[in-house]
Amino acid sequence: MFLIDCPYCGPRQQTEFHCHGEAHIARPKDPDAISDAEWADYLFNRSNTMGVFYERWVHNHGCRRWFNVARDTVSDRILAVYRVGEKRPKVTK
């Protein structure tokens, strides 16, 4: 069983959660001022990190809150869990 430590509810089984991809992607402040390619880059392109990856998760069968996770994509180990709005923690594998 794979446990995720929800910052609000505590440790729960992975099946209660959903992953929603890379975290910390800022929406361009002025979309009209950038090119289609830059907009497409914001919408579609994600880093495909091997190693420590910061991503968004939602506890959708529990408290339904969003939070961020630092996960090692090689070992699938979760290295840190932090709330939306908090700075990404420095983690080591």
């Binding site: 440790p11 729960r12 099946t15 069968h61 408290c63």
Partner: peptide, 19 residues
């Protein structure tokens, strides 16, 4: 249910949303 329902983890006066 995937919750830890052992009395040491979940007892009277507690609630949880789960599956």
């Amino acid at each position: 249910c995937p919750l830890d329902l052992h009395p040491r983890a979940f007892g009277p006066g507690q609630c949880a949303q789960s599956i």
